[in-house]
Every structure is written in structure tokens, then in C-alpha cells.
Simulated assay, not measured.
Amino acid sequence: MNVPNRITDRPERQMLEYMLDHTRAELIDTVRGLSETESRRRLVVSRTTSIGLVKHAAFAERKWFQHILGGLPESECDGAMVGEASFEVSDDETVADVIAEFERASDRARAIAADVGLDATRHHPACGTVSLRWIYLLIIQEFARHAGHSDILREQTAATRRT
């Protein structure tokens, strides 16, 4: 992991924001360079695809930052707000489109969180009271896990190219 000089002793918020941005970039990197066909290839029993993982990450940004933290009704969020369908990518969406959607959602998440303290709390219908700190940690964990999934799919794709 390439960590910028002295990020490890910065204030907590800077470290959390750095790690979140790092996991966002790692997830995007797992689909960059894949063809449209490769990004949609299903190599596991579930319907998980590399492009679908990035699409789902955009949904997670909207759900947690726009809806929960920002208090926007789901109808006013910048895209699909349906959980399981959040992995689905339409035939007319490209890898570049999905990356751009994720980057827009991430930019909006940063803007919403910018003026909120780490200890500020919001209500989530299933989780109860959550703080911005908890949201950061949850999203870092989720994006890191999905980047790992997508890394494995990318390795499997590379192996099928060689055979």
C-alpha cells in the first residue's frame, strides 16, 4: 500500500477521508482496462461482476451520504436507490459511465460530509443511531471488500485470456 508521507499521524478525520478515497480508487482500478465484456463476465455463482460492484458502490455512496447523512428523501438522491438492483448494469451503460457515476456520487458524498462532525449522528432504520465516523468506517470496509472481490474476478478474467 502506497501511503503518502506522514498521513499516519494526521488528525483522525484526515486519515479516515484518506482511507475512504484510497478504497474508492482501488475499486475503480479493478475495472479500468477491462473490456465491456470482461467487466460483465460472471465468474462466480452469484450475479457479481466487476462493473456491478462499482455500480453498487455508487448506490452505497448515495444511500449513506445523500439519504442517511444528508437527509435527502430517496426520490431526491442522484440515482437508483434499490439495494439488490444496485448491482445491475444496463446494456447501454459502459465501464466509463459506471465509473463516472461512482465518482459523481463520491464527490457529492464528500461535499455532504464536509461540514458534518465525526460525532454527528443520524438515524438509520435498520442500524439505529450512527455517527459520521461509523459511516466512514462502514464504507471503507465495504469498498475494500468489494475491491478484493473485483481483484479476484480480474485475476480470473486474466487467466481465461491465457487459456
Rank of each mutant, 00 (worst) to 15 (best):
S86P: 02
R24M: 02
A57H: 04
E36F: 08
L16S: 09
L69I: 15
T48N: 06
P73L: 06
V54P: 01
E26K: 10
V44A: 03
E74A: 15
K63S: 12
E61Y: 03
V98H: 02
V44R: 00
A100I: 06
V89C: 03
L20D: 05
A60E: 10
F59G: 01
S90W: 01
E74Y: 08
A100G: 04
L34Y: 00
D78F: 00
S75C: 13
E76Q: 14
V95C: 13
G83M: 11
S46G: 01
G70H: 11
T30Y: 01
K55I: 08
D78G: 14
E74R: 11
V98E: 04
S86Y: 03
Q66Y: 11
R41F: 12
E26W: 04
E61T: 06
A85G: 04
R40D: 09
D78A: 09
V54I: 06
A58M: 09
H22C: 05
A58K: 02
V95D: 00
E76T: 13
I68P: 03
A96Y: 08
A60W: 06
A58V: 11
S50T: 11
E26M: 07
E76C: 13
V45I: 07
S39D: 00
M15E: 13
P73V: 12
Q14W: 03
D91L: 13
